[in-house]
């Protein structure tokens, strides 16, 4: 008998397959405009955001870097919608991020209005490390990708051709309260999370 068998045998002594599966509470159905709710909740989660058109995106990113006195360098994800990203003043990087990565630009599969979260996933055209190694994480989210609640994100993932190795649901920048219970941003991941809501 293997350890697996022994553990399962002990479990079977106490698992009788009788307790029915309860009905889960209804997923919350937020009232009002989802985009507005998302924006409010982004702010609550300490993420900043702005709206712009696809054409305005490069300029908006450049302005963000300047505003935050960041080097004019950007690690860009290669996913559809961003492969062609270009701005004359910004030096673009497509290699793995490292200690020097000041800002990264990625897309997102969805934005969750209920919680102010973004759903990102791994794939052949993107790097998960970008979401965590940059000081500033800029995320492009098409306004049509806003969903109401967490439950709405799961079908979108199930529809992907392959289930991704990594799914990141990101709600605000990295933070810690491990020193005297005071919240500090930028523990190991991004100090700032900025969402570009494009229409």
């Amino acid at each position: 008998m293997t350890s697996r068998d022994r553990i399962l045998e002990r479990i079977r002594a106490g698992a009788h397959h009788q307790v029915p599966r309860p009905r889960l509470p209804e997923a919350p159905a937020p009232e009002g405009d989802l985009l507005e709710l998302l924006q409010d909740n982004l702010t609550l989660a300490a993420a900043s955001h702005q709206r712009c058109s696809t054409q305005e995106l490069p300029a908006a990113v450049a302005a963000y870097l300047q505003r935050n006195q960041l080097p004019a360098k950007l690690w860009v994800s290669d996913e559809a919608g961003l492969v062609d990203f270009h701005h004359p003043d910004i030096e673009l990087h497509h290699e793995s991020p490292g200690a020097e990565t000041s800002a990264a630009l990625t897309g997102a599969l969805a934005g969750i209005a209920e919680t102010g979260s973004l759903v990102l996933h791994s794939g052949a055209d993107r790097r998960t490390a970008l979401n965590f190694l940059a000081d500033h994480h800029l995320v492009v989210l098409p306004v049509r990708s806003v969903v109401a609640c967490i439950e709405d994100a799961w079908p979108l993932l199930r529809e992907l051709p392959d289930w991704p190795r990594t799914v990141n649901i990101i709600t605000g920048p990295s933070r810690t309260a491990d020193i005297e219970q005071t919240i500090q941003m930028g523990a190991h991941g991004p100090r700032s999370l900025h969402i570009l809501l494009v229409h």
Binding site: G116, R165, T171, P173, G189
Partner: peptide, 12 residues
């Protein structure tokens, strides 16, 4: 918090 900063799924 309503959600922590990172809720992550790892699969394989």
């Amino acid at each position: 918090q309503r959600m922590t900063s990172y809720t992550t799924l790892h699969t394989g």
